[in-house]
Amino acid sequence: MTPRPDSAAAAEARVRQLAESFGGDPARWPEADRPGAEAWIAAHPAEARRLLEDARSLDRLLFAWEAPRPTAAVTTRVQAAAPVQVRQSLRRSWVLTLTGGAALAAACLAGIVAAPRLVDPVLRPAAAPFYASDPDSILSEALTPWEAPVAESAMGVRS
């Protein structure tokens, strides 16, 4: 007997998993798995038949449980509810859009009105003598500590 390559064994294991989870019909398996699984099934028909038949026996049993059909009364009730529900939903969405837009507009307006008041105290201190001074006095105030030594040394004054 020739040993089977690992990939074939892995493919068989995956086909077994798929049959155990999704049943014996490959058409119901995840699309991404199908091409590889079908290739393995085609290459190993006898093993595949055994494996799939085992899963199909459970599928057939499960299909024996039939679900009830909806009654005419519930069909009528559901359809009759549609116009009101659609209208209410549309109205709610318009109201939300309008109130959202109005809220945004109000927020923008409030921002425009309030902005100067909010910004003013930051940029302009209440009492601002320094900014109010003329540039010459500012310069002389700033240089005062440095002027004396420079002047004394320049005039040859000895201490």
């Binding site: 559901v78 509810a81 549609a82 529900q85 659609v86 209410q88 939903s89 549309l90 969405s93």
Partner: peptide, 11 residues
């Protein structure tokens, strides 16, 4: 479920 579907459809 279908009544909720009617509400959901417009949005």
């Amino acid at each position: 479920s279908l009544i909720r579907a009617w509400r959901q459809a417009p949005v």
